[in-house]
């Protein structure tokens, strides 16, 4: 299986690109490394389809669909009886208790990343938000301002283009772009691969700019020390309760673009109140990455966090 939605479609592999290098590294499919099920591939030899070689779960689905749609799905039980006659058993099937978290594979890899970061004194920050909240600008300004004190490394996640990586590169920080293709979030395996390609040095800050999406990335631990959710004042105060999972799983909330407040009806106290309802542990920074207003406190927190790690 692949942790990334839809990325098991042929032609949409995850790509890792370091700006300035000629070609992207195509990462055949994350699950080749991630999910120790390579040894279970027996069945894919049954299919003579040209595109199934890359991974076990890429079989064209057509042969199953025709059947499954013929059956009504009860609300709770979902049945797939492509061959109903096969259900004549003379003995009792065996029930195996599994009690395993569905995302355990990702969580395991995330903990591995976390241990690696800890051992190397790397402060990893998972930056999440809707598209267009100003994550990349925030990173550009932060890196430019603090790069003499803190070595920065950046992993950029987007479905397509290396635009963000190019913007970060112009700040001088080493950066790698992950293009998820159809995927809507980064996962722990992608981070593990990217960190190796990027050669992140000891005692540094690693910014991971996640795919702009307030839903899916919330479920995937990357091994970060802090999850930082960015919301801009153009977005509406009720975003924390509309997309509560992301705010619930973050520990830092940056409210960006406060220079626009005079032109908007945005009530900054209201958004904080909503966010605190969802997560009473949240720590806030009110900033304008563009004008620099409020950024000092964020710089101070980042510097302290970095020193605390050192």
């Amino acid at each position: 299986m692949c942790d990334t939605c839809g990325c098991d479609q042929p032609g949409n592999p995850t790509r890792f690109t370091i700006p300035g290098q000629d070609h992207a590294h195509e990462h055949g499919h994350t699950h080749n490394h991630e999910h120790g099920h390579d040894h279970t591939h027996d069945h894919h030899h049954d299919h003579a389809h040209p595109h199934t070689h890359s991974h076990a779960h890429s079989h064209p689905h057509d042969h199953e669909h025709g059947h499954t749609h013929d059956h009504d799905h009860e609300h709770v039980h979902t049945h797939f009886h492509t061959h109903p006659h096969e259900h004549e058993h003379s003995h009792q099937p065996k029930i195996v208790q599994i009690e395993k978290d569905v995302l355990s594979q990702n969580n395991l890899l995330a903990q591995r990343n976390r241990g690696y970061f800890d051992a190397k004194n790397i402060v990893a920050l998972n930056m999440v938000s809707s598209p267009g909240s100003g994550k990349t600008t925030l990173l550009e300004k932060t890196i430019t301002h603090l790069k003499d004190k803190i070595p920065f490394f950046v992993i950029e996640g987007d479905q397509q283009t290396t635009n963000d990586a190019q913007r970060i590169q112009s700040t001088g920080a080493p950066v790698i772009q992950i293009n998820t293709g159809n995927g809507c979030h980064l996962d722990a395996d992608m981070i593990s691969t990217a960190v190796k390609k990027l050669n992140v040095s000891d005692s540094s800050v690693l910014f991971i700019e996640n795919v702009g999406n307030l839903v899916c990335p919330s479920m995937f631990d990357l091994g970060e020390a802090h999850r930082v959710v960015v919301i801009s004042v153009t977005e509406g105060e009720d975003k924390p309760i509309k997309y509560p999972t992301m705010f619930h799983t973050s520990d830092i909330c940056i409210i960006n673009k406060i220079d626009l407040l005079p032109y908007l009806d945005f009530d900054i106290e209201k958004v904080k109140e909503y966010a605190l309802r969802v997560n009473h542990h949240l720590k806030f920074f009110e900033v304008s990455a563009k004008t620099g207003e409020g950024m000092d406190k964020w710089y101070e927190w980042l510097t302290d966090t970095f020193k605390g790690k050192k």
Binding site: H91, P93, V96, Q97, I98, E99, D101
Partner: peptide, 9 residues
């Protein structure tokens, strides 16, 4: 978000 059990033969 857990897989509780499987029934197998």
């Amino acid at each position: 978000l857990k897989i509780k059990s499987i029934k197998i033969d």
